[in-house]
Design a protein around this nucleic acid. Structure first.
Lengths: 125, 125
DNA sequence: CGGTATCCCCGCTGATACTG
DNA sequence: CAGTATCAGCGGGGATACCG
């Protein structure tokens, strides 16, 4: 197996429009309910949130705790194994910050940095 | 701007099926010609290789050096700015290795790990 | 050699409605 | 509350052919 596949398989985890944001929120807030994740990401549909969470669960990154009660309650959290992604998320965030700074220097401060990435619609915590 | 966007904008760089592999080869081999990259990744089409390289060039990650001669010769390399991705690529590769190991422990050694990721067709350096 | 130009598919994503 | 079900679209990516 070529070394490049390691990089590829690492990336697999992040494939999907919303996974990085979901992971960010779970890493930041610890345990979150389905509805809390929805509130944190107003633009994601239930369908997408569910499917992305299921994939993360399948990859053993996210744990899904179901409370059998009415009304239902489901809590999501990062698994112990998922916590091994911490340095990666950190490196990702740090490079992102440096990159944003780089863009500011290139194009000036006045323009919204979000706009560079077409991320105006993304809202976070 | 929410912190999560930092992670998102970092990911932007890797969006695209082949960018991680391209970056891996360029990080590993230094300077490479278009045809060398093709040889390293037999399954990528010229169209894809070109478009992904253009995007990396646009993001100032990859440098494109054109030698005006016949036959043409074009060399690609990581820019100084692109080299700031090194820790990220490293973290990515390291997590990938750990992840692959994790999969082996879960499902046993006999099965091709590539198969877990559907990466049988990917061939590297 | 190092690309463009074209055509086309399919699967990711979104919108909406329904359910235990 | 926390999801499925269903339908529809659009564009990323592949195959092939052609060009400077």
């Amino acid at each position: 197996m070529p070394e490049s596949c390691k990089v590829e398989s690492a990336l697999e985890i992040f494939v999907g429009k919303w996974k990085p944001v979901i992971l960010f929120h779970l890493f930041t807030n610890g345990t979150m309910r389905f509805s809390e994740l929805q509130k944190a990401m107003p633009d994601i549909t239930k369908k997408m949130l569910t499917s992305q969470l299921r994939e993360l669960e399948y990859h053993n990154i996210v744990h899904r705790e179901i409370y059998r009660q009415i009304p239902p309650k489901v809590e999501y959290s990062i698994t112990e194994y998922g916590k091994k992604l911490t340095p990666l998320i950190k490196a990702l965030g740090e490079w992102g910050m440096a990159h944003v700074q780089h863009l500011k220097e290139l194009y000036g401060e006045e323009r919204s940095v979000d706009a560079f990435e077409g991320k105006e619609e993304i809202s976070g915590a």
